[in-house]
């Protein structure tokens, strides 16, 4: 068996008296789409925050590509190739689409100040490459026509796609999406579905997905984890989850 891309064991996050995440373990292999589902307030976003370094977990280990990343700074983790989106769109809304894509490549463009001030050839080349990568990914998410528009003026669906493109341009190996389909219409959801599958099959990355849209989750996930009130409830493939009595009870009890 190949090495696990992400290997989370016994992850716990405590806020005062509240255990928002309690002893969660999850695994992601290369080129897999793995989903986390659970009722609102179950602690899904908190798991993301722990994995991406926004919170330092109270306990547990997070191994990414064989290295322990629990406790590393957020920007160090994303530089290792683990990048996330947020439940609410977080674009640089006063900047244009292409500028959003360039900011994301900041560390690839991080040349010395002097070479930038004097526009040395090596600086120009790096900038050119960054531009080409940006154009490539804008094409992939069908936003190239809007490249010079202010990102705050895009439609909601376009903003969601830009967010994914902005992550992809950093060349991640694991992309974590927090409710990417929330607020999308059925058409846009279908496009998102196709995009996620394309990312896995053509770009060979893995995706960890939090989503409420069961149609989307059941259709594309290689593996599904269910958590309720911070605690793991079940895991398995779509069919196993659909027929799991605990899961059915948790969801019916909630809604």
């Amino acid at each position: 068996m190949s090495q696990l891309l992400l290997d989370v064991n016994g992850l716990t996050m405590q806020f005062g008296g509240l255990k928002a995440v309690n002893n969660v373990s999850l695994y992601v292999k290369n080129r897999q789409i793995v989903s986390i589902i659970g009722p609102n307030g179950a602690g899904k976003t908190t798991v993301f925050n722990c994995l991406s370094g926004f919170y330092i977990p109270t306990a547990g280990s997070v191994m990414f590509k064989g290295n322990d990343i629990a406790g590393l700074k957020d920007f160090e983790i994303s530089r290792q190739g683990l990048v996330r989106t947020f439940q609410h769109v977080r674009l640089f809304s006063n900047m244009t689409v292409i500028e959003n894509m360039l900011v994301a490549q900041h560390r690839h463009l991080n040349t010395s100040l002097l070479s930038g001030l004097f526009k040395t050839p090596s600086y120009r080349r790096l900038e050119q490459e960054a531009m080409e990568r940006a154009v490539y990914w804008l094409k992939e998410v069908d936003l190239l026509d809007s490249a010079n528009r202010e990102s705050g003026n895009l439609s909601y669906g376009q903003q969601r796609r830009l967010e994914i493109a902005r992550c992809m341009v950093t060349q991640p190996e694991l992309l974590m999406l927090d409710e990417p389909a929330a607020g999308l219409n059925p058409n846009e959801t279908k496009e998102l579905d196709e995009l996620i599958i394309k990312l896995r099959d053509e770009h060979e990355i893995s995706i960890l997905l939090i989503e409420h849209d069961m149609g989307l989750v059941m259709g594309i996930s290689d593996h599904i984890y269910v958590i309720a009130q911070g605690t793991p409830l079940a895991d398995g493939n779509a069919d196993e989850i659909k027929n799991n009595p605990d899961v059915i009870k948790a969801y019916l009890g909630e809604s």
């Binding site: 674009l91 900047m95 900011v103 991080n110 100040l113 950093t170």
Partner: peptide
């Protein structure tokens, strides 16, 4: 890039952190 990063940081610090 550094100027754009200042601007981006002013707009949304959390997004910047998530992008490395």
């Amino acid at each position: 890039p550094i100027g754009r990063a200042w601007e981006a940081l002013r707009e949304d610090e959390i997004a910047c952190r998530s992008l490395g």
